[in-house]
Structure formats: structure tokens, C-alpha cells
């Protein structure tokens, strides 16, 4: 499992901000595909080993404190690398993570929210395909308890994100193709056709 970054703050109980590890911060630095939009992630949440909050990367921001300081500098870039390296590290990639469920010991406990908070600094790792599959499997039935949560967020990217989630799930859960297909058709109609009127 690739560790992507760490939790640095939250905007609400379900909306966390993760800073992606930069070069040198971890042995295996994540590549951009590891934290693409719609990536399933998990982070430790709870007192027991293996308790985790499951989330979805729904937003990405590039953080750059230098942006806006256009004035002349006394030091050049090469001088800064020597005398003030902290300045250079303050650019970062921040991920918006929507927590949509909880897993314990590899099994889904809740779908839709996680009652336990993930601590500051909690490592965020990418959820393996088996984990994604287990998270959506409710006694042999497809479980998307977070569906209404995602639909209720007024972000233009959300329907597309949900569609990409459904596409991903279809590959992972071929036995649920019909159900996923029906949901995707409904969602496409609602978000593409009805909004185009």
C-alpha cells in the first residue's frame, strides 16, 4: 500500500485535508497517479489496530506561499537553497478527502460516514482494490451508502466523480454490473441530460 501523505487538518467531520509527501519525505514518494481524483484512501481512525476511516479524494490544491511575492529578492534561488531551505519546502500538494465510511480489520463497518475522527498527522494510504471491493460489499449486495452524501455536495465535479467511482467499481465488482449500470444511467441522465435542458 502506497502512503500518499498525512492529515494536516479538517474542515468538518467528514472533510479532511491531506498533504502529499514531497521528495525526500518518504522512502517511496507517491507519483501523481497515486492521489488522482477519485482515489480510495484510508487513514487510521480509532484505538484498535486496523481501525480506519475510508475516504475518497475529491479535491486537489497546489499550495505555494511564494505566489504573490513578485518583488525583487536579495537572494537568488541557489543562495536560498543553502541559507534558507525551509522556504523551498513550503510548496505542497493538498488533497481534499471526503470520509465516507469506516473499516475494522478489513471489514466495512459503516458506509456513509465514520463516527471516529482521524488524528492530525495520520498517514493516508491508498486503498488496495481488494479493500475497495470489501468496502462496497454488504453481504453479497452492492453498498453505496455514501451515494446521497456525494450527491448533496454542491460541487460541479461531484457527479463526474461519482460516475468515475461507479466505473471503477464496475471493473472491481463484475457481478454487480447491472446494478451499477442502472445507477450510472440514472446519474448520467440526471446530471448530463436534465441539466442540459
Amino acid at each position: 500500500m502506497t502512503t500518499i501523505g498525512k492529515i494536516i487538518k479538517s474542515n468538518s467531520h467528514i472533510d479532511y485535508v491531506c498533504q502529499v509527501y514531497g521528495p525526500g519525505e518518504t522512502a517511496h514518494a507517491p507519483v501523481p497517479e497515486d492521489h488522482a481524483l477519485g482515489t480510495w484512501v484510508q487513514m487510521p481512525a480509532g484505538s484498535e489496530q486496523g481501525d480506519a476511516a475510508v475516504g475518497l479524494v475529491y479535491d486537489t490544491q497546489l499550495y505555494n506561499p511564494d505566489y504573490g511575492t513578485f518583488g525583487p529578492r536579495l537572494s537568488s534561488q541557489s543562495q536560498l537553497e543553502v541559507f534558507s531551505p525551509d522556504y523551498l519546502n513550503e510548496t505542497a500538494v493538498l488533497l481534499g478527502i471526503l470520509v465516507v465510511g469506516q473499516m475494522r480489520g478489513g471489514r466495512r463497518m459503516t458506509s456513509g460516514y465514520c463516527p471516529v475522527v482521524a488524528p492530525i498527522g495520520a498517514p493516508v494510504t491508498r486503498l488496495a482494490p481488494e479493500g475497495v471491493r470489501a468496502f462496497h460489499n454488504g453481504a453479497g449486495q452492492l453498498e453505496l451508502g455514501y451515494y446521497s452524501l456525494l450527491m448533496s455536495i454542491t460541487d460541479p465535479i461531484m457527479p463526474s466523480l461519482l460516475l468515475s467511482v461507479l466505473d471503477g467499481l464496475e471493473d472491481l465488482m463484475p457481478e454487480q454490473t447491472r446494478t451499477i449500470g442502472a445507477l450510472r444511467t440514472n446519474l448520467s441522465w440526471k446530471t448530463r441530460v436534465e441539466l442540459a435542458r
Partner: peptide, 13 residues
């Protein structure tokens, strides 16, 4: 008609 509405409702929680 091959998918029951119950199944879809269960899928979305």
C-alpha cells in the same frame, strides 16, 4: 426490469 428497485435502493444505502 431485470433490476428490482429494492436492489437499487439498497445499493444507495
Amino acid at each position: 426490469p431485470r433490476i428490482s428497485p429494492d436492489e437499487l435502493a439498497r445499493a444507495v444505502g
